[in-house]
Amino acid sequence: MTAHQRRRIYLMRHGNVTYFDQQGKPFLPEQVPLNELGREQATAAGQIFAAEGIRFDKVIVSGLPRTVETATRVLMATGQDIPLEVQEDLVELRGGKLSAIPDEDLREAFVGAFDGVVPEQKQFLGGESIGQLMDRVHPAIDRLRADKSWDTVLLVLHGGVNRAILSYALTNQRIYLGNLAQTAGCINAIDVGEQQADWVVRVMNFSAISTLQGESRHTTMEVLLEQYMKSRGLRKGEKEK
Rank of each mutant, 00 (worst) to 15 (best):
H4N: 15
R7N: 06
T18D: 12
F20I: 12
E30G: 11
L34G: 07
L37W: 02
G38P: 07
R39N: 08
A45P: 06
G46R: 01
Q47F: 10
F56V: 09
I60V: 15
I60R: 04
V61C: 03
V68Y: 10
E69V: 03
E69P: 05
T70S: 14
R73S: 07
L75Y: 02
A77C: 11
E85A: 15
L90R: 02
L93P: 01
R94E: 13
G95L: 00
P102A: 09
D105V: 05
F110D: 02
F114Y: 15
G116Y: 05
V117Y: 11
G126K: 06
E128D: 11
E128R: 01
I130A: 03
Q132Y: 06
R145D: 10
L154C: 06
V156I: 13
H158S: 05
G160P: 00
V161I: 14
N172D: 15
Q173S: 13
G178F: 01
L180E: 01
A181Y: 09
T183I: 08
A184Q: 06
G185C: 07
C186D: 05
A189D: 06
Q195T: 14
Q196V: 04
A197S: 13
V203E: 15
Q213H: 11
E215R: 13
T219L: 00
E222Y: 07
L224C: 08
G233M: 09
G233A: 07
E240D: 15
E240C: 01
E240F: 06
